[in-house]
Design a protein around this nucleic acid. Sequence first.
DNA 1: CTCCAATCGCGTACGGCGTACCCGAAATCG
DNA 2: CGATTTCGGGTACGCCGTACGCGATTGGAG
Lengths: 260, 260
Amino acid sequence: MSDTSNVSIWMRPEQVQRSGPGRRPGYSRAQITATAIRIADADGLDAATMRRIGQELGTGAMSLYRYVPKRDDLIDLMVDAVAGEIELPDRPSGDWRADLSLVAHQTRTVGLRHPWQVTLARRPTLGPNSLRVYDFALSALDGFGLHIDAMTTLNSMVGNYVDSAVRDEIGWLEQARHTGMDRSQWMAEYVGPYVSQVVASGRYPMFTRNIREGRLSHQQPGERFQYGLDHVLNAIAAALPDPPTPRAADAGHPTTPGAC
Amino acid sequence: MSDTSNVSIWMRPEQVQRSGPGRRPGYSRAQITATAIRIADADGLDAATMRRIGQELGTGAMSLYRYVPKRDDLIDLMVDAVAGEIELPDRPSGDWRADLSLVAHQTRTVGLRHPWQVTLARRPTLGPNSLRVYDFALSALDGFGLHIDAMTTLNSMVGNYVDSAVRDEIGWLEQARHTGMDRSQWMAEYVGPYVSQVVASGRYPMFTRNIREGRLSHQQPGERFQYGLDHVLNAIAAALPDPPTPRAADAGHPTTPGAC
DNA sequence: CTCCAATCGCGTACGGCGTACCCGAAATCG
DNA sequence: CGATTTCGGGTACGCCGTACGCGATTGGAG
């Protein structure tokens, strides 16, 4: 009866190792999750319907509900499974900049491998893999005497940047897959006339400068990502107290960063 | 024939002021958009179905398709309409910190008024209202001699923060509406047992510190927002050259962002 | 071995969605 | 007054998530 409660999937672990009467389960959460991820990678999250997942497993849609309460819960499982692909050492190296950079690049790599992931309006995932990544990143900022709240805030700046950058990058990739245009083609042919009109209106001078002078959009995705990441890491550097800088992060001098 | 093309809604403006034969339109994009927003505010974006919107307008679902090509396009219109509620002066004041802070707080206010908005995996909106906000924010960072790419990057740090913070805040509000628990209750009763288990496992020391020592989650939402915003603005301050130089020719774009 | 109770596999069915198609109604112009 | 163009919207199709319930399978108790 408490079976239909609105409790997070992490509080209802799969009961493996049953004993007692009853037929043995023929599938598993891990198997279902993996199949769903494979489908979503290939054809998008919307294609990973219960019917389709069941079909690829050689069963029906409803069988899956023996393992997963709702489709949304399955998606939570998918997100955490993907977080499990992020490869990190057991503990941070001591070089916070290298460590956060590693997390950022790993997250980007994995994100690009599973494009559906960024389409989610995600509640914070409390699954084991997500927690591992979170803990690694936060540990990298430990030892500077910052309050835990400040560390969390700084760390989330990196996370927000990566999310946003990867979402952007995937947007272009999907645009390209749909229309066969790459970024510059798209700019020129697809929104080109509209953008020209906006520029010509003279009402949006900064937008116009971005179109005319911006070089960022003409660079390779990897360079673009690195450019923004450097800004964020520099910003964090400015907020850290000077003393135990493990590495010469080129310095803007900290003006009034949190003394928090 | 080009009517079914995959062109952005902004390139297919409503043809108001028709002349010639044929029945006169009985509705308008603005009317449909406003109705959809009202429904989404009250019952969530999923409730704003074509049938429901039609119903509230006293018509059928299919009539809407005379005004809007697809539901997704309608959502684009909704997003830009909401951006129109952001109240800004015509031009920045000259105090970049105050200006960006204003944009951030306005965006938060409007975001909280339309909670469905943050659930969107949004492609950049090119509608007139969104462009206006974008231009205002970017203008606030003008005049420091920064390259437009650097200004864009810094500005998006604020945008990313606001998005993330508002999404978080709304997450809690909806949780509260669904379960009747506020944030601390939810922590205690809903995920409490699970969190305790995670903490007790000893595998996630930073997560544990956050639970034990973190004060941020016990503060009011407004203070929490301000705390994070201050960090972001401090970070930007660190990236700006010290004296606000008057609007002058750009010295060109340094490759090392920290030197900006 | 027999039988019972628990568990799994999954077919059927329901209500809801976006929207393609199509035709009657209305409005203007020659 | 037709002819022509546009709007209104009913009907229908193919999807979706998932509630329900029943037969098949299984381990343990007698």
